[in-house]
């Protein structure tokens, strides 16, 4: 942590997350990845929506933007398109990103805009104290699913790949070393990258579902996660009840802002006669 501590706004710590909440671990992994890549703090913008996850940027020593619920990726798109040279990172949660933010998520992925999205998945709406979310497993409890969640939840990796994300990975707060490596590769991917980090919520999801202590919840991650490379050689029975971690998808494709800039530059050269203020509208230029 030592040389990555300088990427934090130390005077804002300790943070507000509950004892044993995984969000701090995920944030730490992101910061270590940034430190390892020696990215310029002055050229990073971290954007978040609303929820426990989205308080993260406040603790990071970059240009940080805490936006409206579900809209982080839309705000981030405006930032990235207007200044492609900035490294734009979105920190969001399962509710923020896949419920109210779902539409912006699939479109950002479709565009393959160079934004690294860190989705802290605690399977619950934590900030509002425990409602179920689109990523609460079926059958589990939430304050708004007192008899068990009857809905199926998203498989974020498949959703991301289908929508067009060019780097998709998953890890957990237990697998923090792997998480850091995956985030590092996501940061290096010149396109839309999604890293889902399962993050234990002991206070609401854990208590409501009697999952024990933070340590118990992380042990559950340990016992139920299977690296995608290992899974390839495991029998279906062995994979029963397990979930995959590791790099799910990595196939670079043309990046949105680069494509737009190249196109626009061509247009601009054609109209170089234009002075700044003297702009005539095409419809009417004689």
């Amino acid at each position: 942590m030592s040389d990555s501590l300088k990427y934090f706004r130390e005077n804002r710590l300790p943070h507000i997350w509950c004892p044993g909440c995984g969000h701090g671990t995920v944030t730490g992994a992101l910061v270590r990845a940034i430190a390892k890549l020696k990215l310029d703090k002055n050229k990073i913008v971290v954007v978040s929506g609303i929820g426990c996850s989205s308080r993260a940027p406040g603790y990071l020593d970059f240009d940080t933007l805490h936006t409206t619920h579900g809209r982080a990726l839309a705000f981030a798109t405006g930032i990235k398109l207007s200044r492609p040279e900035l490294k734009v990172i979105v920190m969001t949660g399962d509710g923020d990103c896949t419920a109210i933010g779902g539409n912006h998520f699939i479109h950002a992925a479709r565009r393959n805009i160079d934004i690294t999205t860190i989705l802290m998945n605690n399977n619950i709406y934590g900030m509002t104290s425990g409602q179920y979310s689109p990523m609460t497993p079926k059958g589990m409890l939430g304050t708004t699913a007192p008899y068990g969640n009857t809905e199926r939840s998203f498989d974020l990796a498949k959703l991301s790949i289908a929508a067009g994300a060019t780097y998709v990975a998953r890890a957990t707060a237990y697998h923090a070393v792997l998480l850091e490596e995956l985030i590092e590769k996501a940061l290096l991917n010149p396109g839309f990258s999604v890293v889902e980090a399962l993050s234990q919520c002991p206070t609401y999801y854990g208590r409501k579902n009697k999952l024990g202590t933070p340590v118990d919840m992380m042990t559950w991650f340990k016992d139920h996660a299977v690296n995608i490379k290992a899974a390839a050689v495991m029998s279906p029975e062995k994979l029963e009840g397990k979930f995959l971690i590791g790099e799910m998808h990595n196939s670079p494709e043309p990046e949105f802002t680069a494509e737009y800039s190249a196109l626009a530059e061509g247009v601009r050269r054609k109209f170089d006669s234009f002075q700044g203020g003297l702009r005539e509208c095409a419809q009417n230029s004689d």
Binding site: M1, S2, L13, W17, C21, G24, T25, G28, A176
Partner: peptide
């Protein structure tokens, strides 16, 4: 360093 890496509060550091 697993303690340092997993600590949610950045509260421990190994030198």
């Amino acid at each position: 360093r697993l303690c340092e890496i997993r600590c949610p509060d950045f509260a421990i550091e190994i030198h």
